[in-house]
């Protein structure tokens, strides 16, 4: 039987996702083995040594240091989990950021109860931002209207678009309280603490529409702080980017930036 089928995990749509799943299977395998061993012993002992069957208890009982052997076995398995899987994975996925030239960079600014998505636009450079320029409706990330680099930046609310097969580097910040950027199908989750900037990255391997969830209690609307991630084919993504860029250019400057 396929061990993996027993787990109700969501589908995996990112390049690193199956590594996390593999470790979920492994650690649960260890748990099942341990629990089964204990449970079997437990049931046998409760039956074998019940008072009716064994009226006289034995003063000396088990004479071997079984508990120590058991502990050593568990320690070895845990060492394999950590050194064989978890720490190398973290080193390459969490500590190192992608250095491929086709990496796409996006900034996400979380607030009660929405995800503001900020693309650098055609020049590939993020414009300056500052809280002074924030406006909930027209300028949710606080782009500086005097910065020429900001003129072509694309800002969307709750709509993250990414191309398939290119690493996506997401810079996360929060405006107000703690949030957590979670995309279950991508096996991505990253707490966002106000005052700190933190990055996470993944490489989508499936096109389609997925959900972004907030995974950290952020107030009364926490449960509906939902965003959408659309993974396009590379061509479709370029097309979408062009459309957005054109829309930004067309927007009358006075309307948008004042």
């Amino acid at each position: 039987m396929d061990f993996a089928k027993l787990f109700p995990l969501p589908v995996v749509a990112s390049a690193h996702g199956h590594k996390i799943d593999m470790e979920i299977y492994l650690v649960h395998l260890l748990m099942f083995l341990l629990f089964a061993a204990w449970a079997l012993f437990f049931v046998i002992v409760l039956f074998k040594f019940r008072k009716k069957r064994n009226p006289q208890a034995d003063y000396s009982g088990v004479k071997f240091p079984v508990a120590i052997f058991f502990a050593v076995a568990v320690a070895l398995f845990e060492a394999v989990l950590l050194m064989g899987f978890s720490i190398p994975f973290l080193a390459e996925q969490v500590n190192a950021l992608p250095n491929r030239p086709d990496t796409i960079e996006v900034r996400v600014v979380a607030e009660q109860f929405a995800w503001n998505i900020h693309y650098p636009g055609l020049d590939g450079v993020f414009g300056k931002t500052d809280v002074r320029f924030l406006d909930k409706q027209s300028n949710p990330v606080g782009l500086d209207p005097h910065d020429p680099k900001a003129k072509d930046d694309i800002v969307t609310i709750n709509q993250l678009h990414l191309p398939i097969g290119r690493p996506a580097l997401i810079h996360l910040r929060a405006k107000d309280v703690m949030h957590s950027f979670s995309i279950p199908v991508m096996r991505v989750k990253q707490d966002i603490i106000p005052g700190m900037s933190v990055a996470t990255w993944f490489t989508p391997t499936q096109t389609g529409q997925f959900e972004i969830a907030c995974a950290q209690l952020c107030g009364l609307g926490h449960y509906r702080m939902k965003g959408f991630l659309t993974v396009h084919s590379r061509e479709d993504f370029d097309k979408w980017l062009d459309e957005q860029a054109a829309a930004v250019k067309e927007a009358p400057a006075d309307d948008f930036w004042q």
């Binding site: 012993f41 002992v45 040594f49 006289q56 208890a57 034995d58 009982g61 079984v66």
Partner: peptide, 9 residues
């Protein structure tokens, strides 16, 4: 668990 072994439960 091992304490149970040999007991009169």
């Amino acid at each position: 668990f091992l304490s149970l072994w040999g007991g009169s439960i």
